[in-house]
Write a protein that binds this DNA or RNA. Sequence first.
DNA 1: GCACGATGATAGTAATACTATCAAGACCTT
DNA 2: AAGGTCTTGATAGTATTACTATCATCGTGC
Lengths: 206, 206
Amino acid sequence: MMLMMGLEQFTFKKLAVEIDSAEASIYRYFENKHQLLLYLVSAYWEGLHHELDEKLKSTKDRMQGLDYALQLISGVSGRPVFMASLHPDKLRRIVVAESSKAYHTVQVDENNRKGLFLPYKRFCYELTELVRSVNADYNYPSALVSTLIETALNERYFSDHLPSLTELKSGSNVDQELYLFLRDLCARVLQTKLDSRRHSSQQILL
Amino acid sequence: MMLMMGLEQFTFKKLAVEIDSAEASIYRYFENKHQLLLYLVSAYWEGLHHELDEKLKSTKDRMQGLDYALQLISGVSGRPVFMASLHPDKLRRIVVAESSKAYHTVQVDENNRKGLFLPYKRFCYELTELVRSVNADYNYPSALVSTLIETALNERYFSDHLPSLTELKSGSNVDQELYLFLRDLCARVLQTKLDSRRHSSQQILL
DNA sequence: GCACGATGATAGTAATACTATCAAGACCTT
DNA sequence: AAGGTCTTGATAGTATTACTATCATCGTGC
């Protein structure tokens, strides 16, 4: 429902009608709509974090780890993502469309103090460590990571709604294109080839 | 008022009380709160666009033009920005905190068709042309530009509210640090030194 | 002195975001 | 099997929000 009608139009009342319950009952589970959004967004980042940890257990190569992280945030990682019994694909689309509203509020600082952004921050921190492993001399690992993550969401949204702002063409393989863009960006910034599969010419990066 | 209480808490009713008018009177000027936001955000991008055009008239060097554009979006450009008699500094803070809500709605496509995002898109397009001038071989000029612009807003917001996500330290010269980060990012991606003033060591980029 | 266009004031509505209260059922103990 | 408690649901109500409709006023040009 949230995906279809957007966060603004989505209400607990409508949800209650849909699931044949009462508005007040929903409030027992979630303080308000914003807390529900926070829960969904956190579930998403926890899910990605879990997937990344699994990968890092089986791979010691930090470069490959970072590459996999970019696949995760691009939505092209092979195996289905574990995330609290929620549909990964729909959850990702909600995050793409609404997650910025999770922290663009007057209560950011209060919510941050309460630890409500910890899953997101922990995932960022793990990526930052990977960036540091790949290039210890780069001065802005944290800023690069938050940029990559936010860019993954933004560019994906732009490709669907403001296509003139990006080269990524909305279609069946946007996510793949997004991944290639992020990998290219990351590789240029960190001045490394990000994965073993070498690309012979620039055309592949198109 | 919008800056102080945030877009959600800000209402036309409160504004009417503040300026000693009536709620319905405000509706004569702006269809609704969202249209007001759209107006403010557009005024901001129009203002930056105007400043950039002024600069490009006096400078033929596209590299310096791009550098100036980065100064503009970082908020470190010397002269005060012309923007429809609005206080540039407050306007920028509103844009940093709220602009993502301007297009993260169910009505994006409709608003986009109506041309409500044109000022933003035109500014992006002008930057994209600068990027192309500086490096014609780079495959993602549009995506890079939207990334730089959104990153300028995001990282600025993070430095104030989620500081662990960025190296930029909230303080008197955040904007300067932001500018250095964006210039470094842009230079690495486009594989060029962005301005004439060469920096002798990496410390300066910190 | 009058017409009119722009603005303001008053009042009202539907929907939203809650809150309070009470009732029903599950289950746990003795 | 009776009693108590804990969880969940249903009902009803409130303050606020986001508008809309209608009427009054005021300055301006002619």
